[in-house]
Amino acid sequence: QRGLLFGSLFGLGLAVLLGTFLATNIAYPIDRLVRAAGRIQRGYLDRPVRLDREDELGRLADAMERMRRGVLERDEQLRLMLAQVAHEIRNPLGGLELFAAAAIDTEERGERARLIGRVRGEVQALNRIINDFLAFARPTTVEMSAVDLRVPVWDAVELATNRQGEDVAIDVRLPDHSLMALANDERAKRAVLNLLQNALAVSDRVTVWGDREGGQVMLAVSDDGPGVPDDQRKRIFDPFVTDKEKGAGLGLAIVKRDMEAMDGRVEVRSASESGVGTGAEFRVYFPVLDEPPTP
């Protein structure tokens, strides 16, 4: 009986120790993670998810912390976007009201035509702002296919010329051979068009050029403008970063998102490094495709 009693006490003590171990090392950390998930679900994102462990629960906590930071970053971008939308739309709306009222009041035919032209310009500016915000807010998943990048480049040059006027100078230097890449032709055209419009806003002469570079296809837009200071090159692709009086500061952010969606990248450097210009040079890189896939 004494042996049975000692065995029972030993078993009870072992059970208590095992229960304490499980509660301390498994149940309690899981409860902390459950409560952290509940806070994130309710929108309370100020408290970090911390669990100083090297096992599976620690990796799960790290993943939840990355998720919390991602949600927090998206929320911040959404707040900035809403504030920027209100600010950017208010400016052309004010111009519309002013020019429309002046057009109603004037009796001179020429002046009325001029004011209506200004109204049209404000409508076009408003449309560009809305398109930029829509492009930035859309999901970045794209359909990829074999694309000769010379085609979207020429399409972008034509659009930029039509928007800026016939006096614009865009020098296109593309090779005679095809520049086959795995890309989305519409996104590629939009990326080049955004870069062209930025360059034409600061320079009278812009050069578009490109070729194969290693295992990639590189397209570059070079200008003779003031360039981009070194301390601004890292953040120039962030949304709402701009030094222009007009514009939402989304053009380069859209270029970056489009390129990343196509497994490519964008970078900025001094045009003097390539000798094509004296200002800024923006380069986009696409995965090269040696042979078009057979249907």
Rank of each mutant, 00 (worst) to 15 (best):
F10M: 05
L12C: 08
G13S: 04
L14E: 09
V16F: 10
V16N: 06
L18A: 09
L22Y: 14
L22S: 11
A23R: 15
N25E: 14
A27W: 15
R39L: 12
I40W: 09
R42S: 15
G43S: 13
Y44A: 15
L45H: 05
D46S: 11
V49G: 04
R50E: 03
E54A: 09
E54G: 12
D55A: 01
E56I: 08
E56P: 00
R66I: 02
D75W: 11
Q77V: 14
L78V: 13
L82C: 06
Q84Y: 08
V85R: 08
I89M: 14
I89F: 14
R90F: 13
G94V: 08
L96W: 07
E97M: 09
E97W: 12
L98M: 13
F99T: 03
A102P: 05
A103M: 06
D105A: 15
R109W: 10
R112D: 02
I130P: 02
D132I: 05
L134I: 12
L134S: 11
R138V: 07
T141D: 07
A156R: 11
Q164S: 14
I170Y: 10
V172L: 11
L179T: 06
L179M: 15
L179E: 07
A188N: 01
A188V: 00
N198C: 04
A201G: 10
A201I: 07
V206K: 01
V208W: 00
D211P: 00
V217G: 00
A220H: 00
G225H: 03
G225I: 01
P229N: 08
P229K: 03
D230Q: 11
Q232F: 12
R233W: 07
I236N: 01
D238V: 01
P239F: 05
F240Y: 09
D243Y: 03
G251P: 03
L252H: 00
A253L: 09
V255K: 06
D258T: 07
E260W: 01
G264T: 09
R269N: 02
E273K: 08
G277E: 03
T278Q: 11
R283I: 05
V284L: 05
D290Y: 03
